[in-house]
């Protein structure tokens, strides 16, 4: 199904880098990019890279997926309010559906969005998830650095290397 090839390639900056646009005339930020500023109608929009930090504005867990997403259901989609202001619609990942709430802090990650059929392109793009680490403040908690004791006792009947 080569239909996804050109589109996926065309959208790579948006999907991989969360690239939107900023209006050179009024400073308004948009995601995704568009040809004309919705606030001042200036046509001078410059690429703008969003930080990927934000919080959940609203969300829904999808139990009846569309074709192509059957293998992923149930999954949670959200509208994320980016730290810079715009809302973006995306899937959440690495989170249990019943622990999502409005206002939950999230960060952008790159994941596989879908497969274009059994032998088609793998399409990657942004999703959001609870941050693994709070925004960098130079502090790493002792709990995180504390090491878990490895299992020196363990033995298996057959151990295989590679």
């Amino acid at each position: 199904m080569p239909m996804e090839l050109a589109r996926n390639w065309r959208l790579r900056r948006q999907r991989l880098s969360l690239e939107g646009a900023q209006c050179a005339a009024c400073g308004h930020l948009v995601f995704p990019t568009r040809p004309v500023c919705p606030k001042c109608r200036s046509r001078q929009l410059q690429p703008y890279r969003f930080s990927g930090r934000g919080e959940v504005y609203s969300f829904s867990t999808v139990y009846e997926p569309p074709a192509g997403f059957e293998g992923y259901a149930p999954y949670t989609v959200a509208q994320v309010r980016l730290a810079e202001g715009p809302l973006v619609t995306a899937q959440l990942t690495d989170v249990d559906a019943d622990s999502v709430y409005i206002g939950m802090k999230v960060e952008m990650v790159t994941r596989k969005l879908f497969e274009d059929g059994e032998n088609g392109l793998l399409v990657y793009g942004y999703k959001f998830r609870p941050p693994v680490m709070a925004p960098t403040n130079g502090h790493v908690s002792a709990d995180v650095l504390a090491h878990t004791e490895p299992q020196h006792e363990a033995q298996a009947p057959v151990l295989v290397a590679n």
């Binding site: 589109r7 959208l11 948006q14 999907r15 995704p32 504005y57 609203s58 969300f59 829904s60 999808v62 009846e64 997926p65 569309p66 192509g68 997403f69 992923y72 999954y75 989609v77 959200a78 509208q79 619609t89 995306a90 899937q91 409005i102 969005l113 879908f114 399409v123 793009g125 999703k127």
Partner: peptide, 21 residues
């Protein structure tokens, strides 16, 4: 299509997000 359908965001889930909010 490029941004919402690609994320598996269904017609129902769009409205569901309005309701949740």
């Amino acid at each position: 299509g490029d941004y919402e359908a690609a994320q598996g965001v269904t017609y129902v889930s769009q409205t569901a997000m309005l309701m949740q909010r």
